[in-house]
Design a protein around this nucleic acid. Structure first.
Lengths: 350, 350
DNA sequence: GGCAATTCCGTGCACGTGCACAAAAACATC
DNA sequence: GATGTTTTTGTGCACGTGCACGGAATTGCC
């Protein structure tokens, strides 16, 4: 039978109130009673009933979530789905969440949305960070107010979040190297690295770190590989992309291997399908529906996943457990580096 | 603010009791009241507070778990850890679990332990099944008593569990083929398939299905590969194994690729480390500490994981949600086929 | 020893839901 | 329309914990 505070009180010869005070480190308890109650709690292995506790305390937990705006089928959609799932699971503990979106290509929008959050009355914040210069002012304001926050996706040094959920991007690039290169290098010494540009912005922190990791594998293993950057304009009409790709594939028939260090591998994958490009080995990130479609049809050879749902879920869970249940939470939570191909993808979806 | 039964009662102009009766589909409510309450519940989007509900109902949930006995560091230890973790998480809902172990090399022990469970008073059973002939009599007894059960690890057809948590073994063998063969076939046309034997028993259902899946890849892709079985005696002293392996490696210097379709790849991995065998590519299953040790040291090239922790956790969660919260649960839960190498293993441990 | 101040402790209500029992209303029978 | 029967509805306590309030015990001071 489960041990209750009542049982402890009985055995210690004190009242429920005293046990309660000991339990919550409140004063007004003699040293003698405190010792006795603690000893008996230890002896009987008391574990509080979190449900009864949540019910009695009757508090709410107001989250704010600040992440890049996104349209359907994009990476951040999955992170948000994970967050919403967790908030729903913890709704009985009083959790609810307001979402704020910034434009990842317009840094100042991060500050604008951040101000709204600072003005509101939130118990905790979940942040999908932008560049350091804009993230740190916001987190230090939160530090000032004593509002806890967690990062998802990427970590920004110089801040002190309660926790971080994301992938070790450098390691994931290194891993990509270890998988792709032994398999592909015999097919040709040049590898295409595709990048997408919008305005003046090319690539996030994570993307840059992944490429660094990939290059480190090359360096460490003395692979003789040339990386050729291919820049794809992402903002204008899609025909600009097509033009670049047509030009690339026709003038480089010897390049048989391509990489994306962001989630937009489908741009090339769908081109491959439409144009019937043969024997091109393409590696990308993230299980966007369009990427998965290409993977299934053979236009993308492999995808690396970083478990965005788990990131979002974990972030909310960590905050809830820390605030409501006052548990210590793990600070650094690095997602597994999953390798997906047409032959195992079915078991990662749904 | 969260909608309570009280709010519904107020708005419908009835008492809490009536709302409660509607909520639990009990009779003694006029059609008029039932309609009205249901309409308002719908309108306000009522979601019951599971905590308050669990607290008030004050019921317990007694699990029995019947799995193969295992010593430290073996596969089933992780499954059990997952089960224990879930039971702990749901302890506030009244969950607790008794464990029964059978000898997977002595089928009748399954029946013996099964009888104990049938004699006890359990609300649900978690089964790591043995062969069909011994599993079905047990599950049909459970069916007779109306006791729900779930399978972990493998599925036994002819039974009707509430859910199944495991890996599609055939697909995982197929996937192994797709990863290993393109990489390794140039290194030699013969591949060693290691098996371990104890008494007269060689290999579980899962192991056989994995090999079938592997062979299917070969067939489908017209790979010219010879599979050479290597039988390792697992019961006697370890020196018998060493002898077999010494003989194998010295007389087959051309075989550079090996496979285990069960979790004991460390037997060969540790031999490789001790004897300093070079350039042997070894693939195995499951993240046993000894396997992981070999993977990190390069003696095993890759491991396939089937997420035993999640299997155990999921099984308990499904039963709890079905019984206590009367939720529908997903019947077939196939684990992802994770590919682990020395370069991503760190992020799967812990 | 008397009194106040301080420290310590017990009691009671609340949280939202489940369930048993009692009360009320509706209906049936003569 | 009085009585009994069935259907429908309301009320109250319980679950384990949090918290506020007031009472009891102890201490300090003259």
């Amino acid at each position: 039978m489960r041990i209750r505070t009542k049982d402890i009180a009985q055995k210690a010869g004190v009242s429920l109130g005293t046990v309660d005070r000991v339990l919550h480190n409140r004063d007004g308890v003699s040293e003698k009673s405190r010792k006795k109650v603690l000893a008996i709690m230890e002896e009987l292995g008391y574990e509080p009933n979190r449900y009864a506790s949540a019910l009695a305390s009757n508090r709410t937990l107001s989250f704010a979530c600040l992440i890049p705006g996104h349209s359907e089928g994009e990476y951040w959609e999955s992170v948000e789905e994970g967050i919403r799932g967790a908030v729903k699971d913890f709704a009985d503990l009083g959790a609810h969440c307001a979402f704020f979106y910034y434009d990842s290509f317009d840094y100042s929008s991060f500050a604008v949305e951040g101000e709204k959050i600072l003005g509101g009355d939130f118990d905790a914040v979940i942040i999908g960070p932008t560049v350091k210069e804009f993230t740190l002012p916001f987190t230090s304001s939160l530090d000032g107010k004593g509002t806890p926050y967690v990062f998802v996706d990427s970590f920004v040094s110089g801040s002190s979040p309660l926790a971080y959920y994301g992938q070790d991007a450098h390691s994931s690039g290194y891993f990509t190297g270890s998988i792709v290169l032994p398999l592909r290098v015999p097919f040709g010494g040049t590898i295409a690295v595709f990048e997408t540009t919008r305005g003046k912005v090319t690539g996030s922190n994570q993307q840059i770190l992944r490429e660094e990791g990939f290059r480190r594998w090359i360096g460490k293993n003395g692979a003789e590989v040339i990386l050729r950057k291919v820049d794809l304009p992402q903002d204008g009409d899609p025909s600009a992309c097509r033009k670049v790709l047509k030009e690339f594939f026709s003038s480089n028939p010897d390049i048989k291997t391509g990489l994306f260090f962001n989630s937009r591998a489908y741009i090339v994958g769908e081109f491959i399908l439409e144009e019937g490009v043969k024997d091109f080995d393409l590696t990308g990130y993230d299980l966007l529906p369009r990427n998965v479609g290409c993977l299934r049809k053979g236009a993308i050879s492999r995808l690396i996943s970083q478990r965005p749902l788990e990131q979002g879920y974990g972030a909310v869970k960590a905050l809830t457990e820390n605030i409501i249940l006052k548990k210590d939470v793990k600070k650094e939570n690095l997602m597994p580096i999953d390798l997906l191909t047409a032959d195992n993808i079915d078991f990662y979806i749904r």
